[in-house]
Structures are given as structure tokens and as C-alpha cells.
């Protein structure tokens, strides 16, 4: 094994403040997306993808770095009706099923 030409970069500052370069950390998703989607060298690859075209990215993800109030001002409020964001989709489906059963029971009892 050859010795690395440059020693792994870890400054005294990192150790003092408890930051370890390269170690996995649970960074917030918003912080990561803010950087990997909008920053970094933005140059066309061979596989063309216009991130601005993608509705989800334009609204849902960029929303993560824009205030909700501002979005609502602009008339964007789909998340208030989106089960994935306003609750657990599975939980809702479950609840719907139970409610439907209950309604059937009640309608059955009326007969």
C-alpha cells in the first residue's frame, strides 16, 4: 500500500469543536439538498436533466429552502392536501378503511 501523498485533512479546530472531517453525520436533509441541488459546479453532463423542469423539484424540494409563508403568498399550498406531507399516507389509508367499515356498519344497522 502506498503512503498517501497528502495526510488526511483534520485541523486542530475540528477536534476542538468535535467536528470530524469525513465522518458520517446526520446532516439535515434541507442542508444537503440546499447544497447538492443548487450549488456545486452546475454544468451539463451527457445525460440531460433540467432540474427546473421537474415539477416535484421545482415546488416540493425548492420549497424546503423557501419559507412556507412566502409560498402560500404565491398561491402554492398543495402540501395542505398532500397526505405525504401533512401526515402518514399509510395511517390515512388505514383510517379511511376503518371509517368506511364503520359507515357500513352504521348503514347496515339502519336497515
Amino acid at each position: 500500500m502506498t503512503e498517501p501523498t497528502i495526510a488526511p485533512r483534520q485541523t486542530a479546530m475540528d477536534r476542538r469543536h468535535g467536528f470530524v472531517s469525513g465522518a458520517p453525520r446526520p446532516e439535515g436533509l434541507a442542508d444537503i439538498l440546499e447544497r447538492v441541488l443548487d450549488k456545486g459546479i452546475i454544468i451539463a453532463g451527457d445525460i440531460r436533466v433540467n432540474l427546473l423542469d421537474i415539477e416535484l423539484l421545482t415546488v416540493k424540494i425548492r420549497l424546503l429552502v423557501v419559507s412556507v409563508d412566502k409560498a402560500m403568498e404565491m398561491g402554492i399550498d398543495w402540501w395542505t392536501r398532500d397526505p405525504m406531507l401533512s401526515g402518514d399516507a399509510e395511517e390515512l389509508a388505514d383510517e379511511n378503511r376503518k371509517l368506511r367499515q364503520r359507515v357500513e356498519e352504521l348503514e347496515g344497522n339502519r336497515d
Partner: peptide, 16 residues
């Protein structure tokens, strides 16, 4: 980046 500070990250999904 842990190995070198002379690093230019690219945006997500830059594929050739």
C-alpha cells in the same frame, strides 16, 4: 473533501 481542500463538488446527477 476529507483528503483535500482543493476540491470542486459537482451538482447532483451530473452524468457522462
Amino acid at each position: 473533501a476529507a483528503i483535500t481542500t482543493a476540491l470542486a463538488p459537482f451538482r447532483l446527477v451530473t452524468i457522462y
